[in-house]
Nucleic acid binder design. Structure first.
Lengths: 218, 218
DNA sequence: GTCTATATTGCGATAGAC
DNA sequence: GTCTATCGCAATATAGAC
């Protein structure tokens, strides 16, 4: 059972931060425990005072990251708002989080295969809760007639993909803040479910205004 | 200079296929050269008869995969068709390819960091060509007035994300064929750029019809 | 071109002093 | 709880016979 308390040792936090950065940039298998220790300013052995194995570090990051995402989208919209507002608010929060925390979110989204089966199953439960939030919003919008899509599940998946894929290409050096990205993607999500964006939310055509700022790996 | 001919040795092809599968499922750093050799039914040493290093195998896969994607989207639409048709055709082809070849495309999209700087730069050039295709279609649609978006680059990125992210979650055991996915995502792409889908392309509401088939890691 | 055997290095994890 | 030192093994890559 994973009933680990988030024991608040400063060293522990430094190690986890170092691991997030390393895993995010070089991948779990591309990162050595020595990398993590060095980035945290410690000896290789220090890692094992706080964590049993390298995989266990990944699990902590992954589980906690998923919980954080779940929290963010739960808190994003009032319970009593309609499907359109809920979808916009949820996407705004989901997208902004993925951009703001793109390194951590990269680990969260792309390193599931490196977990032990037991740990992976635990994380998958959290992922399913996240997926359900999007499914239920789209389902609600279809029931009220606010949304119109040919496949509920694919549409929800497409909307989530917008957020998830940000972690692959996003750079804070690029032209977009997490908030701007959240806003525009919220608009895109509404369009995907067949809601015409209110003209107030639709800013003037600024196509090409951002210019060619392409991040290398995009 | 990478002027390597695609020398058509059967053994070579078997090794590359084995590497695609292994890299796709366990990641580059999670795969050993012994894994590759074993999957190809050969001894560990046999790998080095055909490839200088493990990274060089990844480079071959990555470069060739990118070229294939570029080809697919180039061939997808007639030169003289309008932006709406071109966008739909390109997304259809792009998405179907990523679903059909989801393991290879996963390597293509997620293993750039494992390449040497030189190889990565070469691959990034190919990626830019792919990005440009989408940019130019959206730009064209804005110029003709067929499309309406608040940010050209973000919209093109969002559309590409639909295809790229498929490689993370797609399973052939799921309810969707690559073609169905391509069709629905083409519709979503049109909506993202503000084109209302023609009613002929919009199938009857079948929300919930697919049921709960969620793939584990989605 | 394929094999067996191996050189060599790097990595996860531990031992034991302070 | 941190360190230095190190164990044991796995990984990339090579040597050399057939």
């Amino acid at each position: 059972m994973a009933t680990e308390q988030a024991r608040g040792s400063a060293t522990r936090a430094r190690l986890l931060d170092a691991a997030v950065t390393a895993f995010g940039n070089k991948g779990f298998h591309g990162t050595t425990t020595r990398d993590i220790a060095a980035a945290a300013g410690m000896s290789p052995a220090a890692v094992y005072v706080h964590h049993r194995t390298k995989e266990e570090i990944l699990f902590q990051i992954s589980a906690e990251g998923h919980r954080q995402i779940l929290q963010v989208i739960h808190d994003s919209a009032a319970e009593d708002s309609g499907p359109t507002d809920r979808l916009a608010a949820t996407v705004r929060a989901f997208v902004a989080f993925h951009a703001e925390n793109h390194v951590k979110a990269r680990v969260v989204n792309y390193e599931l295969a490196a977990l032990t089966e037991e740990h992976r199953n635990e994380v998958i439960k959290l992922r399913r809760s996240i997926t359900q939030v999007f499914h239920e919003i789209v389902r609600a919008g279809l029931q009220t007639g606010d949304f119109s899509v040919s496949d509920m599940e694919i549409s929800a998946t497409a909307i989530m993909s917008l957020g998830v894929d940000i972690t692959r290409w996003y750079s804070p050096d690029g032209p977009w803040t997490p908030e701007v990205l959240g806003e525009i993607y919220a608009e895109s999500a509404l369009r995907i479910v067949g809601v015409a964006a209110p003209s107030s939310a639709l800013q003037a055509h600024r196509a090409g205004a951002a210019g060619q700022t392409a991040h290398a790996a995009r």
